[in-house]
Design a protein around this nucleic acid. Structure first.
Lengths: 207, 207
DNA sequence: TAAAAATGGTACGAATATTGTATAATAAAT
DNA sequence: ATTTATTATACAATATTCGTACCATTTTTA
């Protein structure tokens, strides 16, 4: 219960080889079969790591799923950041890159996984995803502010609006019935982000 | 145990709507997640059919899996038959159609499913697949004989050889380590059948 | 319409599968 | 040499899945 739930990570993620193995196969299996269809022992076997070692790294299946989720999300955020801060492209190009690179929702998470992972009332996964999504969009918001200062977006555009819309998006993307309308979570994200971003771009400034 | 295992089906498969629903979703789920990851209740729910009705149609999960397997195999055999007996195409065209249409192994079965379905020592699935494979190849062999009479294949080619090679192929395709070498069971079949057929074709007779 | 057949819903015990932990033996690292 | 990390195995506690019984309801058939 009283687990270490620090907010910030001081050291760099200097994880061992087993950790990497576990994360890798966990992602592989989760992506393919979803959350509930994969067992811990299965992950261990395919990773060539003993169950005990698993439990030294992760408290339970939920925790490794969170870790996989986080890593993927962070990966997406970083890519987003790289694109939006470079000076090589025009705003439109950036937008298109971001969107086409599935970067938009900022993560590339399988439908099976998200579905299972999310719809698990017992564990606080719903809350967790919402919290993480909020945090991620916070980071991206900060990036937007920077971009705004550089003149990429209209000066009179209020980032808060974007923030609030993001919240709505988080709600939407966590809505099962919504997810089912689209091929993948990314498709939904593309649609929504498309809607938002192309109304924000500073037209005429084709720098 | 003493199940009705007739060899021939007298009536046409006049199955009800529920049967079709169950078969359809069963295939869908098996194809995606394999055999063991799918539960009966899951099939029922997604089919909109009660569990009781399921058990009125199938004795257990293995039986519906067999049924799905059989239907898919038979579907393949029929397609094979249609191609090989038509007069519209040359032998080479036929061969290419057969192969390219994944028709070759005569079924289009997902790796996950075959893997799980096969490697279940308790239930006689190994034996079942082997038996069915034998039967299917028997049917195809008959078709080959007919085609041979029509001059599609060399007259001095012995169908028995083909039969024996088929057995070997059955062994190979049921070999897990073999399956793992290929993207899909079909890929393996393509490779093997390719090898066999293109050495059998009556050259020069491009009718 | 009335009888017969098929289906659905619920509950339930039994069989399996999965989890999470304890323990002792091994291997790796310092 | 002595920690430290890892594995292998066994195990109780849960959780899941299976297969069946019972009965209400719907659908089909005569």
């Amino acid at each position: 219960m009283a687990d270490s739930s620090e907010k910030h990570v001081e050291k760099k993620p200097r994880h061992g080889e087993r950790w990497n193995n576990l994360m890798h196969t966990a992602k592989e299996l989760f992506w393919k079969y979803g959350f509930k269809r994969v067992s811990i022992e299965e992950i261990c076997e395919k990773s060539g790591v003993s169950k005990m070692t698993f439990y030294r790294h992760f408290a339970n299946k939920t925790e490794i799923a969170k870790a996989v989720f986080d890593e993927e999300v962070q990966h997406g955020v970083n890519a987003f950041r790289n694109i939006i801060h470079t000076t090589k492209f025009t705003t439109d190009q950036k937008m298109k890159m971001i969107i086409s690179l599935k970067m938009n929702g900022s993560y590339d998470i399988s439908k099976e996984f998200l579905q299972d992972f999310y719809s698990n009332p017992e564990l606080g996964l719903k809350e967790y995803i919402e919290e993480r999504t909020r945090a991620v969009w916070g980071e991206m918001l900060e990036d937007f502010r920077k971009a705004q200062r550089k003149g990429v977006f209209r000066k009179d555009f209020k980032p808060e609006l974007f923030f609030h819309l993001s919240q709505k998006m988080a709600d939407l993307i966590n809505d099962k019935s919504m997810l089912e309308l689209y091929e993948s979570p990314q498709a939904l994200m593309v649609e929504l982000t498309n809607m938002m971003l192309y109304g924000i771009v500073e037209r005429g400034e084709e720098k």
